[in-house]
């Protein structure tokens, strides 16, 4: 999973991450009414479970990040969604920790928000399922690439000696980029077929998921 452990990063990097996550979360909280909390919460819970699934590659397996899908569905709300999910993961399984929480959330949530807008631009260019799949593929690839780049930056800004390690992480995650891109593409095609309302909501509301079915 894409987490930096506790105690690795330097104070300036930790602070920057925390401040950026706080800002992103503050923007998102303005867009969330109390009425939306069940929806954002339960969709986040599904992403949390999605994060725990092992996907096989060759002899090993990896965990998914799913930030492209999170961003497409939730928009800015991806910030609080990942914040809460990672906090829970740190309490339940000690993944990620506390002081690195800000950086860890920022690394996945910023690319999620970028994908939200990217997807909106892409989806205007075509109606077909094939194009939807391709848009998903692009978003998935962009989201993970950005996440890996942010991860590298946070290591390199901490100390130059992390440079080699950061390069290895980049190389190791190229496979993840492809897998997430494929999964995001397939998943979006599936969602539009099975539950097109998810997309109607998305197009009506700037901030992503908001029940239009609601009375």
């Amino acid at each position: 999973m894409m987490h930096i452990s506790e105690g690795v990063l330097s104070a300036p990097v930790l602070l920057t991450g925390a401040a950026a996550t706080a800002a992103g979360t503050a923007i998102a909280l303005k867009k969330i009414d109390n009425e939306d909390i069940p929806q954002v919460g339960i969709v986040s819970a599904a992403l949390f479970v999605g994060n725990l699934i092992h996907i096989p590659i060759g002899p090993t397996s990896i965990h998914l990040v799913l930030n492209a899908i999170a961003g497409i569905l939730l928009g800015w709300k991806a910030f609080p969604a990942f914040l809460v999910a990672f906090l829970l993961q740190s309490i339940l399984f000690q993944f990620g920790g506390l002081t690195a929480l800000g950086v860890n959330v920022f690394m996945v949530a910023l690319p999620a928000v970028v994908c939200h807008y990217l997807f909106k631009v892409l989806i205007k260019k075509g109606e077909s399922s094939k194009w939807l799949g391709i848009s998903g593929f692009i978003c998935g690839a962009v989201a993970i690439s950005l996440t890996v780049i942010l991860l590298m930056f946070s290591l390199i800004f901490t100390h130059d000696s992390f440079y080699e390690m950061a390069r290895m992480i980049l190389a190791g995650n190229l496979v993840l980029v492809i897998i997430e891109a494929l999964l995001t593409g397939f998943c979006l095609v599936f969602l539009r077929k099975v539950k097109p309302e998810l997309f109607i909501d998305l197009q009506v509301e700037g901030g992503g998921l908001k029940g239009s079915e609601r009375v």
Binding site: Q39, I42, L66, T184, K195
Partner: peptide
């Protein structure tokens, strides 16, 4: 991908019912 999609759909539907 379908499995994750299905989880999202069910969660979305459940969130509507919970609300």
């Amino acid at each position: 991908a379908y499995l994750i999609g299905m989880l999202l759909v069910r969660s979305y539907e459940r969130s509507t019912r919970v609300y």
